Amino acid sequence: MANPVMPNGIKPVVAGYSMDEPGGVLRTDVAGGIPRYGMDWDRGVQRFKVTLILDALQFSIWTAFYHHVIRKGSITFDMQLDSGFGVVPHAVNILPGSYTAARTGGIMIVVSFTAEAESDVYDMSAADGSELVDIYNLYGSGLNAFFDRLGRFATFESNVLDFGL
């Protein structure tokens, strides 16, 4: 069964958006030496601080979604987040005790909470990640232009070659 999805038009604001690290790294002090670091686990969720600025209608829709559809964040739902590769859907839960809603001096309501989600970086393999870094080291800030040009060649210009497929 698919996850519930955030109601249309309700999106986090950029200014109140941040994330922390996914954890899984241990640090052990060593007497008279450099501390030792090691992996305890890989992957893991990150916490995203999310702010929604809603008008009265959006707030009523959000409140119904929050209480009845996602059961106060205990049911995983899909939300548009940027964990490093652009804004894409992430499966999230709301961290208990992090939800607040406050009416501003006007008619807007500011809803804030901490969402936990796994970064979409794990959709690529470790080899893909290393290759991406290698390509960046080769092209630098021109990497986006390279990918745009490659995409144009692969989806449009190569069609004139008529591979006989």
Rank of each mutant, 00 (worst) to 15 (best):
G16T: 05
A154N: 02
E157H: 10
I109W: 02
D82V: 00
N159H: 05
V133R: 02
L138W: 10
R71Y: 02
D162Y: 08
F59V: 00
L26A: 04
M6K: 02
Y122G: 10
T63M: 14
A31Y: 07
Q80H: 10
M124W: 12
Y136K: 07
A91Q: 09
S158A: 03
V110C: 09
L165P: 13
I10Q: 03
V50G: 10
A102L: 05
I109P: 15
F156E: 09
T28H: 05
G23V: 09
I70E: 13
S18E: 12
A115M: 03
R103F: 08
M39T: 15
D123L: 15
N159G: 00
V121S: 14
L150K: 05
T51W: 01
Y99H: 13
M79W: 01
L54N: 01
N144M: 04
R71E: 12
Q58E: 13
D120A: 14
V45C: 05
T51N: 08
F65V: 00
V88Q: 06
I70K: 13
Y99Q: 11
V50T: 06
W62G: 03
G24Q: 06
L57V: 12
D20L: 06
F113G: 08
Y139C: 06
G129K: 00
D128K: 06
P96D: 04
K49E: 15
M19A: 15
A126T: 07
L161V: 05
F77Y: 03
K49V: 00
N93W: 01
I107G: 15
V133D: 13
F59T: 01
G129H: 03
S125P: 09
E116I: 12
M79P: 07
G86R: 13
M108Y: 13
S112T: 10
D40W: 11
F146W: 08
E157I: 05
M39C: 11
N137F: 00
L81W: 09
S18Y: 11
V88S: 14
A31E: 14
T155S: 15
F146H: 12
I34V: 13
W41N: 10
N93D: 10
F113A: 14
K72V: 00
M19T: 07
T104M: 06
D55Y: 00
A127D: 04
S74M: 08
A154I: 06
R103K: 01
D29Y: 08
S130P: 11
S74L: 03
V160D: 14
I34K: 11
R47H: 02
G164I: 01
V160I: 15
E157L: 10
S130F: 14
A56Y: 02
P4V: 01
V160F: 15
M6L: 05
S98I: 03
I61K: 06
Y136D: 07
T114V: 14
G140P: 05
